[in-house]
Design a protein around this nucleic acid. Structure first.
Lengths: 246, 246
DNA sequence: TCACCTCTTTGGTATAGACCAGATGCGAGG
DNA sequence: CCTCGCATCTGGTCTATACCAAAGAGGTGA
């Protein structure tokens, strides 16, 4: 930040601090390589305390302008990824169509008893075991979503032998000759906690968007259930009934 | 409990302030007709400072357990309203089907130039005037959503003479013989600011869910555009392709 | 009855420190 | 070359206190 902009900021009210940071961000004075200076440094520059500064940063975070990675620092948010949960196009293709670059990491793939609510969604008795595949995805190198898939062990007997870092959609089609049919999903604003927070490198309690989706094949048989946890500033849900819903 | 873990217990109370409040909420010790004691009283009760206490309350707020009304206090959240933006059932009926009670307040109904992005969505040149209807809705007496409707002045010439506290869906059908056709919408997690925050009685910067919807009639003509701002803990979006999309 | 004013209570913002814990980079030792 | 451990960064949490501004209660006067 230049001496000028520091001088411009003379009033001490909270809103002006937030506005000052907003302006400096917009004009690219603050961030170097999308990364903001440390909180201590910012507090000094704006002649305020870390508590007050963090309050302002939290507001900008909620507004989707910046985000933080746990104990790593603050960063400037990129544009949102447009996402239609009714489409089962694979993630790579979806991001490519938006001129973004995506990657997927496999966290685990095991057999496990699903929680009761998931069993209910999958129309199986509580305590049923499913394949549990946990992955996380990046867009332009930023961690944006943590996904937990629950798959029928009967239908996908040998899924663990497949490459699970790619598209499950394609795997279903190519290895199991399954095409998607109906879908249902639920979107909830939630706090990211536990594993979703850890894997996304954000602190416990960060705001996120949870999307729970149940996928069926053409015969109406339930195939799997995905539970996605998105960084809230990284995604925009968009649905249009004029699009065919395959 | 072993001696080791007892030792650990005395060293660091693994029951954090947040968890303590969480327990008190769950067991009904804290909620007195859904309102929490003042921050000062809570801080005293939990032997901590207001800053720390507010941090904990913010976490619970993000998690959707409690919410605040600007300078009025903290309240315990009720269950979420299930909402399908593809359905144009009127609000009253939707809430009744979930055993909730709804009400709508008209804030203003005027002719006004719509912002550029809204004009673009409505496929009209920038600077076009529309009817602008602003309303807010309550569920079980809690303010949950602020809505801004932009309607074609040509199609709805005399809409200001109608009762605008009721269902616009019904008005379209009964007074204008219009049925809904295709819909498209966009969901974004945002910070509530300005009018949306003021009208919802929440402080500037509170986290919310924005839903922008464009409605068409059966011939594909654009009817209107709704911009909704929801309190994040009050709504759950649910969509199922097996439901008919009228 | 009702508009208006005032006083109290509430959350909202701010100061100035301090220590903790995870992330990271670097250097020493294998 | 690689690994391990330590020093030093970062944000995360905390104490203690103060004043401000809006909301709400209650009283006052037309």
């Amino acid at each position: 930040m230049t001496a000028d902009s520091a001088n411009e900021f003379t009033k001490r009210s909270f809103l002006t601090l937030e506005q000052a940071i907003r302006n400096d961000l917009a004009e690219g004075r603050l961030a170097v390589d999308r990364r903001l200076p440390s909180e201590r440094e910012l507090a000094e520059r704006y002649r305020t305390t870390r508590i007050t500064l963090r309050e302002a940063l939290s507001h900008l975070e909620m507004d989707g302008l910046i985000y933080r990675e746990n104990r790593r620092g603050w960063f400037v948010s990129d544009r949102r990824l447009v996402y239609n949960p009714l489409w089962r196009t694979d993630f790579q293709r979806m991001t490519r169509e938006q001129n973004r670059q995506a990657s997927t990491e496999l966290i685990e793939a095991v057999s496990a008893v699903a929680p009761d609510d998931i069993c209910a969604l999958l129309e199986q008795p509580s305590g049923t075991e499913f394949w549990r595949i946990r992955r996380r995805r990046r867009v332009d190198d930023r961690l944006v979503v943590f996904v937990e898939h629950h798959l029928s062990k009967a239908v996908f007997a040998d899924i663990l032998e497949q490459d699970l870092t790619g598209s499950l959609t394609n795997l279903y089609r190519e290895k199991y000759a399954l095409e998607y049919g109906d879908v249902s999903f639920e979107i909830n604003p939630v706090a990211l906690t536990g594993m979703s927070a850890t894997e996304l490198h954000c602190s416990d309690g960060t705001f996120g968007l949870q999307i729970v989706r149940v996928n069926r094949d053409q015969t109406g048989r339930i195939l799997d259930c995905d539970v996605e946890y998105w960084r809230h500033d990284a995604v925009s849900i968009r649905i249009d009934t004029r699009d065919s819903i395959p």
